[in-house]
Nucleic acid binder design. Sequence first.
DNA 1: AACTAAACGAGACGGTACGTCCAGTCTTTAA
DNA 2: TTAAAGACTGGACGTACCGTCTCGTTTAGTT
Lengths: 192, 192, 192, 192
Amino acid sequence: MTDTRVGRPRSEQAHDAILDAARDLLNEKGGAATTIEAIARRAGVGKPTIYRRWPSIADIVLEALLRQAEIDIPVPAESSAREALRVFLRRSMNAAAGADGAHLRFLLAHAQSDDSFRERFRDGFTAKRRETLKSILARTDERGETRSRIDPDTAADIVFGVMWYRLLVGHAPLDEALADELTDLVADPIGG
Amino acid sequence: MTDTRVGRPRSEQAHDAILDAARDLLNEKGGAATTIEAIARRAGVGKPTIYRRWPSIADIVLEALLRQAEIDIPVPAESSAREALRVFLRRSMNAAAGADGAHLRFLLAHAQSDDSFRERFRDGFTAKRRETLKSILARTDERGETRSRIDPDTAADIVFGVMWYRLLVGHAPLDEALADELTDLVADPIGG
Amino acid sequence: MTDTRVGRPRSEQAHDAILDAARDLLNEKGGAATTIEAIARRAGVGKPTIYRRWPSIADIVLEALLRQAEIDIPVPAESSAREALRVFLRRSMNAAAGADGAHLRFLLAHAQSDDSFRERFRDGFTAKRRETLKSILARTDERGETRSRIDPDTAADIVFGVMWYRLLVGHAPLDEALADELTDLVADPIGG
Amino acid sequence: MTDTRVGRPRSEQAHDAILDAARDLLNEKGGAATTIEAIARRAGVGKPTIYRRWPSIADIVLEALLRQAEIDIPVPAESSAREALRVFLRRSMNAAAGADGAHLRFLLAHAQSDDSFRERFRDGFTAKRRETLKSILARTDERGETRSRIDPDTAADIVFGVMWYRLLVGHAPLDEALADELTDLVADPIGG
DNA sequence: AACTAAACGAGACGGTACGTCCAGTCTTTAA
DNA sequence: TTAAAGACTGGACGTACCGTCTCGTTTAGTT
C-alpha cells in the first residue's frame, strides 16, 4: 500500500496557480476566453502540466468551484428543519447569483459537448447537492413540520431545476424571494 | 416601398441546405462536430453565405429547431384545459427526449458563452414557450378546474426548469410520467 | 457597318470612375490593396461591370497608365538625335520615378502570374516603347552622330533592362544621371 | 551564450518538406497555385508551422531557391578572368532559363507588393549576385585584360538588368549568345 | 554523493476551425 | 436587350486553440 512515488512530486504551487487562473479568467473575461491555453499562460505553467492532472478544462473549473467555501453549503443547524431549508436555499441563490454563477454556467455548458465530463459533473456535483437537499427535507418529515406532498426527488428536481433554469436563461433573478418561494413550495407548513 | 432589392436574391435552396446540414450533423455527430466549417461543407455552401445570414452557429441551430413542427407545440384543443396541459407537457417531453434534445442542449450551451445569442434565445424561444404554457394555465383558472395555488410565472419556472434540468444533467428521463407529475403539480384538480 | 448596338449602352462615367479608382488605390494604398473588389467599391460600381470590360485587373491598370500623358513620351524634336535620346530617357526616368512607377511595378508583377496578360503587356506596352527608342537610335545612325557599336535591339535591352531592374529591385535611383549615362553608353559620340 | 533554446526543437524534416513542396508547386502548377495553403497541404504540415518560420511565402521560395546549388554560381576558376566572366554569365543564363526561372519571377513579382520582402530579397539575393559579378570584373581589371570602360556598378546594372528584363517580359531568350554578348560588352578585350 | 525518475517550463508539432477577404459567376431589376 | 449591382460558390488568408511531443532543467527519493 505504499504510494510513495519516485521522481519529482507534483507542484502544489502549480496546482493552485492553475485553479486561480481558471477562476480569474472566468470572472474577468468570461467563459469564451477561458481556454487551456489562456489558463496556462496566466498561471505561468506549461500545458502538459495541466493535461497531466485534469482530463478537460471543465474539470479544472469544477475543482476551482469546489475549492470555494461559498458553494460548499453545509446543512445549517437551525432550530427548525424548515428554517434550515430556507437558509440552504438562500445561500445557494446568493452563490449562484454571485461569483459561482460563471463557474456553474461554464460547467453545464461544457457538459453538453463532453459526455464523459457530464457524468463526472453529475456524480461529483449535482448528485451531492441533491443528497444534501434531500437530507434536509427528510428532517422536515421526521419532525412533522410539513405536509410532505411532494416526494424528495421531485422536490430536488423542482428546486434545482428552477435555479439552473433561471441561471442559464437569465429571464429572472436568483434572489432570496425565490428561495422563500421554493421553501414554501416543497415544504409547505401544515395549515399553510 | 423599399422591398424592391436589386442584385441576386438569396437562395432559398442554400438556406434549406444549411439548416438541414446543421440538423443532420447535430443528430449524427453531436454538438462538438457541429461547426460552421462542417455545415458549409455538408451543405455545399461557402462560409460567407452562412455568415451573411446568421450571426452565430447557435442561431442556425435555433432556426433549424423552430422549423421542425414537432417542437412548435400548439395549444391542444382538448376537452378540459387540464387535459390540454397534460398533452402539451407530454408532447414537450417527447420532443426533448427525441430529436430535439440535441438541438436544445446545443442552444443552451452556446447561450452560456454568447450573451448576444442568449438574449435572442430568451426572446425567440423560451419566452414564447412560457407564454404558451401560461395561456393554458389561464384557461384552467377561467374554468375553475384547479386550485391554482401557484402563480403562472412560477409554474412556468417549475415546468421548464425541471425539463431543462433533466435534459441538461441527464440524471432522470423526460417521459410521460414526468409530464403527468408536473400537470398535477401546477394544476392540481380541486379535491385532488 | 452599323455598330448601333441594341440594349443599354455602357456608361462612360463608370469607365472613368474605374480607371480613376485603380490609379488612386495604387498611389494611396499600394499594389497589395489594389483589388477588383476595392476598385469596384471605390468607383461605386458592381464587379460585373468591371469584368465585362477588362479581362484582368492588370489590364485596367495598363489602361489607366496609358491614359496618363506623362508616360506616353513622344520622340522629342531636338536639334540632334543624340539630344533627343537624352531627353527621351530623362523623361522616362522621371515618369518611372514618379507616379507611373507604382503602375509599372504592378503591371510587371501581375504579368508573372498571368501569361495572357504578359503577352498583352509585351505587345501593347514594352514593344511600343522599344520601337520608339529604336527609331531615335536609327536617327543617330543616319546622321552619323555616334559610333553605333551596339545594335538597336541590344541597346533597347540595356536601356529598358537597367530601368526596370532599378525600378523593381530599388537598389539605385532612376534619375537624370542614369539617363545621361545610358545615353552615352548606347550612343557614344564619335571621338568620345 | 543564449543558444540553449528551451522547448521542442524545430523539425528539420518539416523544414525540408516545406521547401520541397514550394519548389515542386512552382515548377508543376506555376506561381498562381503556389499558396501557403497548398504548400502546407503538400508538405503534410500545419499552416502555423509555416507562419512560425517565414514571414511570407516569398521568403519560403527564396530559401528554396538558395538551397539549389545551381543558382549559387561560384566564381569559376578559369584561366583568364574574362573567361571566368563568360562562364559565370552562361551559367546564370542557363539557371534563369531553366528551373530557377519560375522562382526568380515569383520572387520579383512578390517583391512589388511586399516592401519588407523586397528589402530582404535585395540584401539576400541581388546584392550578393552583384558582388560576385563585381569581384570577377575586378579581376579582369587587375590583369589588364579589358579596357574597363564601364564602371563595375553600371556593369552589374546592365548585366542583371538585361537578364531580369528578358526573364520578366519574355520578348527574347536567355541563352549563351546573350551571355557572350554581355561578356563582350562589359569586358571588351583590348583591341577588340 | 551520485543516480534515478518524474515533474517542470517552454514551445514546436499536425490539425481544425475561426471569421474575413477576394475571385469570378449568376440572377434579378433598371435603363 | 444589355447594363448594373448585389448575392452567390469557392478558396486562401492569417490566427487561435486543441491535445501531443520533445526538449533541457529541477527536485525529490533511492542507492
